[in-house]
Design a protein around this nucleic acid. Structure first.
Lengths: 221, 221
DNA sequence: TTTCGAATACCCACCAGAGGGTATTTTTTA
DNA sequence: TAAAAAATACCCTCTGGTGGGTATTCGAAA
């Protein structure tokens, strides 16, 4: 045990933890693997770069847990979690993401992932997460925890926009005009205008540009 | 030598290559370090997460080369290269980026970096790059090379927008109105309108939304 | 059962920006 | 040094979206 990390759960393990890594950046994948395998109680049984390969790897190796990036090219880590949970309901997941937006984090946690660690966190936090999750607990990195607690005081934050409003925002972000949106959703152009106004009010963005940036930041695009 | 990589330049080295790593994601930094130090001719003398720390580390350790991420929080890898080149003109740089947009790559190469490797490339390419750059050569990963060659056939691609136009696009993306941009740059509102039209024409985006997405895709925001 | 949020819809005034030009000066490149 | 590219500037038209309202229906919580 090389690292000076206080991980209580570690000592209870009698056999190595089998891990599947998912990240679409090959170099990071290799680095992460090296990092994890420094600890000889942990074993990376497969490291893949996309969702289909990940599903196959999980099916083949039946790992103890899956550590996945959130941004995975065409589809995302969320869809990997969703698909896997259907096929292997007891599979454990740690999401390793660069996003710390409250809204996004909450959405991911709702999918039932067991841990959430930021890429800018330390490797120690990742190890803590691995052992906690292996031991049947959940683990949020310090920063994520702080963020979640903080968001308790701003209850609106999470569900700012209604489903309908988000639908319309997505269309706006796809360069639809009000007229086109109205036709698409079989509603009046007036209604679209109203929704649009509400979206502006709620997001506190005064311009289209700000709105698009909001949509980006909240991963609606 | 554990890896089966054919690196001619490696055998000529008589002493280890001192490397400074720069990446704002702590976990990746650790992983990268492990990856590189697998090769015992390579030594990571420092690993930091932002531009000021990087400058200090370079000054202190006088490394043989610096491997830096492109996205570094507030400032970017480009500004690191620029600042460092002023202070240490002979310092060698490899940019490790997730961006493969022709426009962006060319801009980075213009700064005089010695290597460009994508995060989705293999670790072997990174090693090739390190040894090539150490040996005084330049190194572009296979994918980057292919992209550069391809862009030869589409001469417009690379320098789509002029410096001024990009300046204005950035302001547009910062929610400036035409009037505000005019005041900011000490030019007439009419001129801003003209630039704006040219930007739309060149980017082939019909709407503000498309423009903002272009700006995102080309890392102007 | 009442109240509240969400979705629907309409009206009007106003203007910033899209879209169409043309033209001059400066800088870069051939 | 001539030609091309970039930056500057002005004019006109017109529409789409912004910002200000108000109001009805409907389902869900209280």
């Amino acid at each position: 045990m090389k690292w000076l990390v206080n991980i209580a759960a570690r000592d209870k393990l009698t056999q190595t933890v089998k891990i599947v890594l998912v990240d679409d950046h090959s170099i990071l994948l290799d680095g992460l693997k090296k990092l994890i395998e420094e600890d000889d109680m942990l074993s990376v049984v497969d490291a893949v770069g996309n969702v289909p390969d990940a599903i196959r790897a999980i099916d083949k190796h039946k790992p103890d847990l899956v550590i996945t990036d959130y941004n995975l090219g065409p589809d995302d880590g969320l869809s990997l979690v969703q698909k896997s949970k259907r096929l292997f309901p007891d599979m454990k997941f740690i999401v390793l993401s660069m996003h710390d937006e409250a809204h996004l984090v909450k959405e991911i946690l709702k999918e039932g992932v067991n841990g959430y660690v930021l890429k800018k966190d330390t490797k120690e936090e990742l190890l803590e997460a691995i052992y906690a999750v292996r031991g049947g607990k959940m683990y949020m990195s310090t920063e994520i925890n702080a963020m979640l607690v903080k968001s308790l005081y701003e209850p609106e934050e999470g569900k700012l926009l209604t489903a309908r409003e988000r639908e319309i925002l997505k269309l706006i972000a796809q360069e639809y005009s009000n007229k086109m949106i109205a036709e698409e959703l079989f509603i009046s152009e007036r209604t679209v205008e109203t929704h649009r106004k509400n979206i502006f009010r709620k997001t506190k963005t005064g311009s289209l540009v700000g709105l698009i940036k909001f949509a980006y930041a909240n991963n609606l695009i």
